[in-house]
Each structure stands twice: as C-alpha cells, then as structure tokens.
Amino acid sequence: MAIPTTKDELLQAIRTNYSKLVSELSDIPIDQTNLLTLPGHTRGTSMSINNLISYLIGWGELVLKWNKKSEDHKQVDFPETAFKWNELGKLAQKFYQDYADINFTTLCTKLDQTVLAIEELIAQKSNMQLYGVPWYEKWTLGRMIQLNTASPYQNAVGRIRKWKKEQKNEQYP
C-alpha cells in the first residue's frame, strides 16, 4: 500500500491494516497469547501476542498524547518522556509492562478503543493540518500518525502470520 498523503488515504490505510490485524487475532487460542514465542522488538528478545497488542496500544496512546499536548500548546517529549528515539526497544518493554496484567480479550478491546480514538482525531483534522505543514521536525501529523498506526498494524499482521505458520509446523511436523 502506498504511503498516505491525504486524510481519506490515511483513514483507509488504518482501517484496512487494522481489519487485517483483527482477522489474524480472531483465531488465536487464548492459551497461546501469553507465550513468549514471537521475536521481540529488541534483537535477541521474545514477546507474546499480548505484548504485541500492548505495543500497538502504547504507540496509539502516544499519538493521542502527542496531539493533545500539541493542541494545548505544551511541549511534546518525542517519542516519550524519558525515552529517546534510539531507545525504542526500551520503550517497547515499557509498553509490555504497562499492560502486563491485562488479558487478551481486554487488550483487544483496548486496542479497538485506541484505534477509534485515532480515527476520531483524524476526522477532526483537515488535509492541511494532516499533510500541509510540518508537525514534528520535517514530518507531517498525518505521516506521524501513519508511522505509528497503519504501518505497525501491517507489521504485526506479518509477524502473526509467520508465528502461526511456525506454530503449525511445530504442532504438525
């Protein structure tokens, strides 16, 4: 899918990629969602399906936080307070911890709510606000949203499909 350059394209990318993600999540057995069998977001680490969902929630919540702070004319700490861009693996670990005590079903509901809130945010913005002016350094708001929603959803779909294939091969060699 091409990189979105309009509000409509951004919403379509999010909806398309999120729909694929929801489909992939729908048939995962609950008892496998906490197993550390996926490659983690830091080299040499492992994560669970629940961790992956936590990661997606975490980035979605950051998008909403960045926008709220920006609208309130407050300083935004990118990517997150106490984290630098070269510490995204540590930030991923923080997201895993933030939602560690939440079960798969509740995580999926939380992710649904986060995606809806992001869609509402986009709906309130004009094409000019999303793509007409730099929002963070050289990046537009639309591009920052896409980099932290539609793209990670697409990546997660690939990770889950690969994981399912590996699980199938392990169960039925």
Rank of each mutant, 00 (worst) to 15 (best):
I122L: 03
L141Q: 13
E137Q: 12
I122C: 04
N34V: 10
R159V: 10
I122V: 15
I28D: 13
Q154C: 00
T16F: 07
D8N: 13
K165F: 05
K110R: 14
L107W: 03
N155I: 06
K110E: 12
E119S: 05
F83H: 06
L21E: 07
N148E: 09
N67L: 12
Y172W: 09
V22W: 02
A2D: 11
T33E: 06
G44V: 02
R161Q: 13
R143V: 05
E170T: 10
L121M: 03
K168Q: 11
G40A: 00
S26K: 10
A123M: 04
F104H: 14
I145V: 15
V157K: 05
N127H: 04
D27P: 02
K65H: 15
T33V: 13
W135Q: 04
I122F: 02
R161F: 00
K165R: 12
T114D: 09
L88W: 02
G89Q: 03
S151R: 06
Q154H: 08
K164T: 06
T33D: 05
K125L: 08
D72E: 15
F104L: 05
A13F: 04
E166S: 07
L147Q: 07
D31R: 01
I102P: 11
Q124N: 14
L141A: 08
K168P: 00
W59G: 10
S70T: 14
T37M: 06
V63Y: 03
R159P: 00
V133D: 02
L35D: 10
N50T: 12
V157I: 07
E119V: 11
S46G: 03
F83A: 09
Q32D: 08
T114V: 15
I14H: 04
W135N: 02
L130Q: 02
M128W: 01
F83N: 06
R161M: 07
G60N: 11
N34C: 09
R43W: 00
M1W: 00
L38V: 07
Q12T: 13
G158H: 01
L91M: 11
H73G: 06
Q146K: 03
E119F: 03
P79G: 08
G60T: 11
E71M: 10
N34K: 13
T45A: 01
T106V: 15
R161A: 02
K74I: 12
N86H: 04
E170I: 11
Q12I: 05
I102T: 15
L121E: 01
T114Q: 10
L91S: 06
I57L: 08
G132H: 01
Y172H: 12
Y96F: 13
I102W: 01
N34A: 09
D98P: 07
A82E: 14
T105F: 12
K69A: 14
S70F: 06
Q12V: 05
L38K: 03
Q129T: 06
Y131M: 01
T81Y: 14
Q171C: 00
E119N: 13
Y172F: 12
T37H: 02
D31A: 05
K94P: 00
K110M: 14
L141W: 04
I145W: 00
I53D: 08
P134M: 03
I14C: 08
Q167G: 00
D72Q: 15
Y99E: 08
M1E: 05
L36E: 08
Q129L: 08
Y131T: 03
A13M: 08
Y136V: 14
E9M: 06
Q32L: 14
G158R: 02
S26W: 04
N86L: 00
Q12H: 07
